[in-house]
Simulated scan of single mutants.
Amino acid sequence: MTETVLAEVLAELAELDDPKARAVNERHGDDHGVNLGKLRAVAKRLKTQQDLAVQLWQTDDTAARLLALLVCRPRAYDRGDLDLMLRQARAPKVHDWLVNYVVKKSPHAEELRRAWFADPDPVVASAGWALTTERVAKKAAGLDLVGLLDVIEAGMATAPDRLQWAMNHCLAQIGIEHPEHRTRAIAIGERLGVLRDYPTQPGCTSPFAPIWITEMVARQGAAVGRANASPGR
C-alpha cells in the first residue's frame, strides 16, 4: 500500500516541478523545482506517515526528501539514522530542514551536536554549529561561550561558506543573548569582516554580525519599553 502511495506522491511532485522555480532554487544550490508552499500543502494533506517518509528519503530526490522531513516522526529516528541522513543531505534546504525540523526535536540532538561540531566535513560541522547556536539562545548553561568565541575568531574568516555562515550565526547569537560577551562579539565581527558586504533586501537585517547584534538588541530594548509602558504596569 505504501509503495502505491509513494508512486502517487512522486508523480504529484513531478507535476509540481516548475522550471522557473528550479532556476531560482539552483542559484541557492537546491536541485528541485517545487514551490515550497505547494510542498507544504502536500505534507499537510498527507499528515505524519513515517514509513512513507523513509521511502521518500531513499529516493535521493531533493523535493521528495524535503517532503519526507515534513511528514516524518522526528523521534522515530535513532542516532545512527540521523547521522547518516545528515551526511546524505547535500542540498542546502534539505540540510537546513533536517537540522531544524527533525534533529532539534530528537532526543539525540545534544549527542549529535557534540559529534558534528568538530567533524572534518565542513557541511556536517555546520550542523553542529547550528545546534550549538540553538543552545546559545535557549539553554546556554554548560557551554563555554568564551571558548566558542575563540574558535570563531580563529577560524571563521577562512571557513567554507556553509560552515562560515553557521559560525557567524553563532557569533551573532552570543552577542545578542549574552550582554557580557557582546562587546567582544561585535569586535570579532568588525575585525573579520565576514558578510560585511552581503546583499540585503530593504527591510531585512544584514547578516554582518555587528549590525545584526546591534539591530536585534535594539529591538529587544524597544519591546521591553513598550511592555513597561503598557496600561496596568
Rank of each mutant, 00 (worst) to 15 (best):
Thr2Ile: 14
Thr2Tyr: 06
Val5Trp: 11
Leu10His: 05
Glu12Ile: 01
Leu16Gly: 09
Asp18Ser: 07
Ala23Met: 05
Val24Met: 11
Val24Thr: 03
Asn25Glu: 10
Glu26Arg: 13
Arg27Asn: 10
Asp31Met: 08
Asp31Cys: 06
His32Asp: 15
His32Gln: 15
Gly33Tyr: 09
Val34His: 10
Asn35Leu: 09
Lys38Arg: 15
Leu39Cys: 10
Ala41Tyr: 04
Ala43Gln: 13
Leu46Pro: 07
Leu46Cys: 08
Thr48Met: 08
Gln50Tyr: 10
Asp51Lys: 15
Leu52Arg: 11
Val54Lys: 15
Leu56Arg: 05
Leu56Asp: 01
Trp57Pro: 05
Gln58His: 09
Thr59Met: 08
Leu66Lys: 02
Leu67Ser: 04
Leu67Ile: 11
Leu67Glu: 06
Leu70Ser: 00
Arg75Ala: 11
Arg75Glu: 12
Ala76Asn: 04
Tyr77Pro: 07
Gly80Lys: 14
Asp81Arg: 09
Leu82Val: 00
Leu86Met: 12
Lys93Ser: 07
Lys93Thr: 04
Val94Thr: 05
Trp97Gly: 01
Leu98Pro: 03
Val99Gly: 02
Val99Ala: 06
Val99Asp: 01
Asn100Phe: 02
Val103Cys: 02
Lys105His: 15
Ser106Gly: 10
Ala109Gln: 14
Ala109His: 06
Glu110Tyr: 07
Glu110Cys: 00
Glu111Trp: 04
Leu112Pro: 05
Arg113Pro: 08
Arg114Trp: 07
Trp116Lys: 07
Phe117Ile: 05
Val123Ser: 04
Val123Lys: 04
Ala125Ile: 02
Ala127Gly: 06
Leu131Gln: 03
Thr132Val: 10
Thr133Trp: 00
Val136Pro: 02
Lys138Tyr: 15
Lys139Cys: 04
Asp144Val: 00
Val146Ser: 13
Gly147Ala: 06
Ala154Ile: 03
Ala154Ser: 09
Met156Tyr: 05
Met156Arg: 07
Ala157Tyr: 02
Thr158Pro: 01
Thr158Phe: 02
Asp161Val: 07
Arg162Ile: 05
Trp165Gly: 12
Trp165Phe: 11
Met167Val: 11
His169Ile: 07
Gln173Val: 06
Gly175Phe: 12
Gly175Thr: 14
Ile176Asn: 03
Glu177Arg: 12
Glu180Asp: 14
His181Asn: 09
Arg182Val: 05
Thr183Asp: 14
Thr183Cys: 02
Arg184Ala: 00
Ile186Phe: 07
Ile186Asp: 06
Gly189Ile: 01
Glu190His: 10
Arg191His: 15
Leu192Lys: 15
Leu192Asn: 09
Val194Pro: 08
Asp197Thr: 14
Tyr198Pro: 01
Pro199Cys: 12
Pro199Asn: 08
Pro202Gly: 04
Pro202Trp: 05
Pro202Met: 03
Thr205Tyr: 00
Ser206Leu: 03
Phe208Asn: 06
Pro210Leu: 08
Ile211Leu: 10
Trp212Met: 06
Glu215Thr: 15
Arg219Gln: 14
Arg219Gly: 06
Gln220Leu: 12
Ala222Trp: 02
Ala222Arg: 13
Gly225Tyr: 12
Asn228Gly: 05
Ala229Thr: 04
Ser230Arg: 11
Ser230Ala: 15
